[in-house]
Design a protein around this nucleic acid. Structure first.
Lengths: 245, 245
DNA sequence: GGTACAACCTCACGTCGCGTGAGGTTCAAG
DNA sequence: CTTGAACCTCACGCGACGTGAGGTTGTACC
C-alpha cells in the first residue's frame, strides 16, 4: 500500500477546488472519500480522484451537481441526448445574453450621445427602449440601430437637441393661433417631416410601427411635450404641406 | 379620490410579476405601497406604479434588486458609468456562454460521429476536449474544428474507427520483433503519418502543440493503447521512412 | 343574516453551490 | 510538551423569489 491517498487539503490544492467544496460534495453524496483515518480525516483514493475528474468535466459543461450525480450514477444514459439538451439550454441563455448586451450597448451609446443625463432622462430612455422592443420587429430595430450608428454620436446629439426646440416653436405657433398653412408653420412642419424621415429612413414598416406606438402610448409623447392637441395641429400643417397652396 | 389605487393581485396581473415578488419587494424595502386599507391590504398608488416601472426597466438590464434600490435612491449617480459597468459584466458572461456553447456543440458533433458511446467514452471525450483547450490556442482550435466540419461526420467516423486497428496492427508488428524498416511496418507508418497529417493539416503550430500534449499527458495516449514503448517503435519506423532504403 | 369563495394577510422553510466564520481535535516538527 | 498547520463538525448567509400552511377580509348570492 503506497502513499497514494490524498487528504482534502492536498486534493483541493491540486484541483483548484476549495476544501469547503469537497466537503460539500461529500455532504450531498456526490463524492464520498472511500477511506478515512481513525480520527476521521478524509482520505481520497485514486478511484475517488478519477471520479472527481469526471465531476469536474461535467461541471465545466454547465451541468448541476444533481445532474452530474445522476449521470455518473447510471451507466446506460444516452450521452448525446444529455449533451443536446444541455446545448439547447445553453443556446437559449446565449441568446438572452446577447439581447441583454445589445440593449446595454444601445443604451450606453444613447447616453454618450446625450449631453446632460438626469436620473429621469436615464429611466425614460430605458422605458423608450422597452417600448421600441415592443412595437418594432427585431429586423426593424436592427435597421434603426444601423442608421443611428451611421449618423454618429455628434449628429445624433444634434438631432436630439433639435427636437425640443422644434416642438417648442411649433407649440408657440399653435398657441398664437397661427394658420397651419402659414409660411412659418410650413417651415417648421417641413423640418419636422425631415427629422422623422431621417429616423425612419423612408421604411414604410418603420413608419407604421412608429404610428402604432404613438397611438398606443400617448403618454410617451406627452412627456416630450407632444400632447394630442399639438399633434393634431402638426397633422393639419402636414396636410397643408401636401396640398398645393 | 378616484379608484386609482391597486391591490397586489391587480398589480401582479398587470405587470406579470407574482404576488410573492411584490411582497418580496415590500419586505426588502424596494417598493413599499404608499397606502394600506384599514385591514392591512396593500394599496399601490400611481407613484408606486411609476416606481415599479422603473424597477422593472432596471431589472431588465440585469441589475440586482440591491443595485436597483441604490440607483433609484440617489439622484446624482452617473448613468453612463453604471451602464458601462453592467455592460462589461454582461460581455464577460456572454463570452463564457459562447465558449460553453462551442464546447457543447463540439462535443455533440463528436458524439454523433461516434458509433457506440459508452459512459466511459463519453467522459473520455470530455477530458480530451479539456486537454485540447489546455494545449491549443483558440485559433488552432478553430482551425481543427473547421477541418473536422469539412471532413463530415462519416469520414470522421471512419478515421476514428481506423485508429484502434492501426494501433493494434502496429503493436503486433512490434511484439513479433519486426524490423521497423520492414515493408509491412513501413506501410503502417505511412498510414500513421497520413492520419496525423489529416489531423494537423500540416500546420506546424498544431503539430507542435500535439507533440507537447503527448509529452505532457502520456496517460491520455495510454488509454488509447499507445504506450511509450509503442510510440518509440513508431518513432523509429518514421525515421526509417524518411531515410532512404 | 349566513355562506361560499376569491383575494388578501403573515410566517417560514426550500432552492443552489458553496463562502465564511466559530469552536474544537489531530498531526508533524522541534 | 508546545506550537502551528491542517483537519473536523455545525450552522448561518447569499439572491430572488416559489411554495405551502394557516388565518382574515371582501364580495356576491341566497
Amino acid at each position: 500500500m503506497q502513499h497514494t491517498e490524498l487528504k482534502v487539503g492536498e486534493l483541493a490544492r491540486r484541483t483548484g477546488l476549495s476544501i469547503r467544496a469537497l466537503h460539500h460534495y461529500d455532504e450531498i453524496g456526490l463524492l464520498k472519500p472511500s477511506a478515512h483515518t481513525a480520527s476521521g480525516h478524509r482520505l481520497y483514493t485514486a478511484a475517488d480522484i478519477a471520479r472527481l475528474s469526471h465531476i469536474l468535466s461535467l461541471k465545466q459543461l454547465g451541468f448541476s451537481l444533481e445532474e452530474i450525480a445522476e449521470t455518473l450514477g447510471r451507466a446506460d444514459f444516452s450521452a448525446l441526448r444529455v449533451v443536446e439538451l444541455r446545448l439547447q439550454r445553453a443556446r437559449e441563455q446565449l441568446a438572452e445574453q446577447r439581447q441583454l448586451c445589445d440593449r446595454l450597448d444601445s443604451l450606453a451609446r444613447q447616453l454618450r450621445a446625450a449631453e446632460h443625463v438626469s436620473a429621469d432622462d436615464f429611466l425614460q430612455t430605458i422605458e423608450a427602449m422597452t417600448m421600441f422592443e415592443k412595437y418594432y420587429t427585431p429586423e426593424q430595430l436592427k435597421e434603426l440601430e444601423a442608421r443611428r450608428q451611421a449618423m454618429g454620436d455628434d449628429a445624433l446629439r444634434q438631432v436630439e437637441a433639435e427636437w425640443p426646440r422644434l416642438i417648442a416653436s411649433m407649440r408657440e405657433q399653435m398657441e398664437q393661433g397661427a394658420d397651419p398653412a402659414s409660411e412659418p408653420v410650413r417651415a417648421l412642419a417641413t423640418r419636422w417631416r425631415e427629422l422623422i424621415r431621417a429616423f425612419t429612413g423612408g421604411n414604410p414598416g418603420i413608419e407604421k410601427s412608429l404610428q402604432t406606438m404613438h397611438q398606443q402610448e400617448p403618454r410617451m409623447a406627452e412627456r416630450q411635450g407632444r400632447d394630442p392637441q399639438l399633434m393634431e395641429y402638426v397633422g393639419r400643417a402636414m396636410a397643408c404641406l401636401d396640398a398645393p397652396k
